[in-house]
Design a protein around this nucleic acid. Structure first.
Lengths: 204, 204
DNA sequence: AAAATTATTAAACATTTGTTTAGTTTTAAA
DNA sequence: TTTAAAACTAAACAAATGTTTAATAATTTT
C-alpha cells in the first residue's frame, strides 16, 4: 500500500464513524502515522481527500447488474433473488462506508459531492427497474409501482443497518450484537426480502 | 415564542441541513438574531442545545399507536393501513428533522444521544410488532418475519426521503422536484406500502 | 556524481471554534 | 424606590481547525 492509500484508508475509517466535519485532518494523519502536511501535499484539501475516498472505494463496482438484465436462462424472479443477494452481500461487506455515503446524501452541503454519490448509489437501479419491468411485460409479475418496489428492497436493507444500536433494538438483541458480522442475520434478511418480493411481484 | 424557542428553531433548521458539527453556534446565533453568549447562557453548551432540540421536537409524539393495538372495531390489516398512513404523514411533515435523527444514529459519536434517539425512533415499533403478531395469531396474517416486516415499512418510507436528490433520481423527476411537498408522492407511497403489506401479510 | 525532482518534516499562519468573563441593561420583588 | 434577580452584550479566551511555508531528506534522472 502506498502512503496515499494508507491515508485514504484512515480517512474512510474516520469519516465513516465520525462524519466528515467530525473528523480533523490531524486525526487522519495520526491514524495513518503520517505528517499532517502530507494530506494537503497529496490531495490538496480535506474536501478533495473526501472525493478521493469516494472514488477509491466505489470505482470497482460499476454496473454489476447490467449483464443480468440480458441473461436468458434465469426467470425474472430468479434475477430479483440474485440481485437481492448481491445488494445484501455488498452492504454487509461495507456497511460503515455505506452509512457515510447516505449521511452525506442527507446533508445539504457539497452539492456536487451529493450528486456524485447519488449516481454511485443508483448505479444499478436502472438494471433493477428493467428486470421488474420485463417481469411485468412478460406476465411473470403483476403490475406494481416499479420505482417504489426498488426503494423497498434497498430501503429495507439499508434501514436495518443504519446503526448497530438501531439494529439491536429493532431485533431485540443485546448491546454487544454486531449486525454486519452476523451471517445469521444476513441469511434472515435475505430470506425476508426474497419472500417479500415474491408475494409482492408474483401473480397469485 | 420565547427567545429560547427561537434559538431551538434556528438550531433545528441548521442542524437538519448542515449537521451538528457542520453548524457553528455563531451561525445559530445569527439566524436566531441573538447574541452568541445566549446559547451557552440558556443551554450550557452546544451539545446540550442539541439534546434540547431533540427533546423539544419529539416530546409531543409519545405512544401514538399504543391505543391502536387494543382497538376492537378495526381488522389487523386496517390497523396496519392506519399505521402506514400515520408514519408517512409524520415523515412528510418533518422530513428534514427525521434526517437529522437518522444521521446522528449513523455516527459513532455521542452514545447517550444515539441511545435516546433510537428510543424515540422505535417508540412505536413495539405497537406495530404487536399488531402484526396478533394478526398472525388470529389467522388473518400468514407467518412472516415480524421485525423485518416492520423494518421494510419504515425503511421504504425513510429511504425514499433520504434526500431530495436521491428521491428525484429514483423517481426520474427533474431537479426542482420537492419530494415532501408533493401530495401526489405521499399518496403514491401510501398506496405502494399498503399494497406491499397486503400481499405480504394477508393469506392467499 | 551532479542536478533535478519528489517526499517528508516541523513550525508557523490565519481563521474559526465553543466557551467564559465582566459589565450593562432590563425586569421583577420588596 | 430601592434591591435583587434575570436577560443581555461586547469582548476576550484558549484551543482546534485547515492550510501553507521553508527547509531538509530521499529518490530519480541526466
Amino acid at each position: 500500500m502506498t502512503k496515499k492509500e494508507i491515508i485514504i484508508e484512515s480517512a474512510i475509517k474516520l469519516f465513516s464513524t465520525k462524519g466528515f466535519e467530525g473528523t480533523s485532518v490531524r486525526e487522519i494523519a495520526t491514524d495513518a502515522e503520517v505528517n499532517v502536511a502530507m494530506i494537503n501535499y497529496y490531495f490538496g484539501s480535506k474536501e478533495k481527500l473526501f472525493e478521493n475516498v469516494v472514488e477509491y472505494r466505489t470505482s470497482f463496482l460499476r454496473g454489476v447488474f447490467s449483464e443480468l438484465v440480458n441473461n436468458k436462462t434465469l426467470s425474472q424472479i430468479e434475477k430479483v433473488d440474485f440481485m437481492i443477494e448481491q445488494l445484501i452481500e455488498r452492504k454487509f461487506s461495507d456497511a460503515k462506508f455505506s452509512r457515510l455515503l447516505h449521511r452525506e446524501m442527507s446533508l445539504e452541503l457539497r452539492p456536487q459531492m451529493r450528486n456524485a454519490i447519488s449516481n454511485i448509489l443508483l448505479r444499478n437501479i436502472d438494471s433493477v427497474k428493467t428486470i421488474i419491468r420485463n417481469g411485468i411485460k412478460c406476465g411473470e409479475f403483476q403490475s406494481v409501482d416499479i420505482e417504489l418496489t426498488v426503494t423497498t428492497v434497498v430501503g429495507t436493507i439499508h434501514y436495518l443497518l443504519t446503526s448497530d444500536t438501531m439494529c439491536q433494538k429493532i431485533l431485540g438483541k443485546k448491546e454487544g450484537f454486531s449486525p454486519f458480522k452476523s451471517k445469521q442475520l444476513k441469511k434472515r434478511l435475505s430470506d425476508h426480502t426474497k419472500q417479500l418480493m415474491r408475494s409482492h411481484l408474483l401473480k397469485k
